[in-house]
Amino acid sequence: MIKTIIFDLGGVLIDWDPQHLYKKIIPDKQKRDYFLENICTSDWNDCQDAGRPLAEGTQLLVDQYPEFKNEIQAFYGRWEEMLVGPIQSTVNILEAIHRGNNYSLYALTNWSHETFPVAQERYDFLQLFSDIVVSGVEKMKKPDPGFYNLLLEKHSLLPKQTLFIDDNLSNIKAAQALGLQTIHFKIDDNLEEQLRNSHSIIF
């Protein structure tokens, strides 16, 4: 029986994507994709999510690619433009689960501690969670098993009674290895149906 549901945030509840910003800065798709796949990469951003200061990460790239200085500095200088709003269908489900009051609700997110306060101020639904564990604060991130265990142990959660929802397959596999039940979230899937039929979640 599921007693606890853990949500990822970016890509599940919040529409965050560097493309939202860089479509404005680099209109040419081929050049934009090159920039995001080779310079301001996901791996580079992950380091900031794991606690590296934004200024340090930015300067590291500027030193390597001075010809892209303006584009690199925009990543965090205009970071809020990557954050375009809630994924409302999922937020509606979160709110319904919260109203039902049958499950403990937590969030586990890879997010810089310097930018996360922006999301907290912008999105009231984040207050529905009993706790949000942020990678940049803890200096560890998914899919590190220690990051999951931090939340599980902090709140005495049993993995077999816990459902974890994330859009990243690597994060899902790490959760499964720890014994959590999981849903690999995809924006086009019917999350409500998966919750009700596959995991017997009542809301």
Rank of each mutant, 00 (worst) to 15 (best):
E192A: 08
I202V: 15
G57V: 08
S198T: 10
L157M: 12
T182R: 01
I14T: 01
G77N: 10
L13K: 01
Y76F: 15
I6A: 00
F164Q: 02
P27Q: 04
I132G: 00
I187E: 15
I25N: 02
Q120F: 10
D167R: 07
E81K: 03
L157R: 08
I187M: 12
D46P: 02
I26R: 05
K160P: 07
I183W: 09
K160Y: 12
V137Q: 14
I6L: 04
N110M: 07
D188V: 02
G136L: 08
I14E: 00
V134L: 05
R52T: 13
A55C: 06
P86L: 10
Q181T: 12
S135Y: 05
I187P: 03
A175S: 03
I165R: 01
A175V: 04
P53C: 02
E71D: 14
L21M: 07
S170H: 14
G51H: 03
A96P: 00
V84T: 15
L105Q: 00
F185M: 08
A50L: 08
W44N: 03
Y106V: 02
W16Q: 05
L191M: 11
T115P: 02
R32G: 00
G179F: 11
E192N: 12
D28E: 15
Y22T: 01
W79S: 06
W111F: 15
K31S: 11
K142C: 05
L178D: 04
D144I: 04
R52C: 07
L157K: 03
A74T: 02
I2H: 07
L9C: 00
F147W: 12
K29Y: 11
Q120L: 15
R52Y: 11
E114Y: 09
K160E: 15
E153V: 04
D46T: 10
S89F: 07
L158K: 14
D188C: 04
N171V: 07
H98A: 13
E37S: 14
S200P: 02
W44A: 00
L128H: 01
Q19S: 09
Q120G: 08
F35C: 03
G77Q: 09
H155C: 02
T115H: 10
D17Q: 09
L94D: 02
D166N: 04
I132V: 15
S42H: 13
Y123G: 00
S135R: 05
K69Y: 09
L61Y: 08
W44Q: 03
L150F: 15
S112Y: 10
S112L: 09
P117M: 06
A107I: 06
L94S: 01
N45Y: 13
G100A: 13
V62N: 03
T90A: 08
A119K: 05
C40A: 15
S89G: 12
G51P: 06
R32K: 09
D188P: 02
K3L: 13
E56Q: 11
Y76S: 00
R99K: 15
G85K: 07
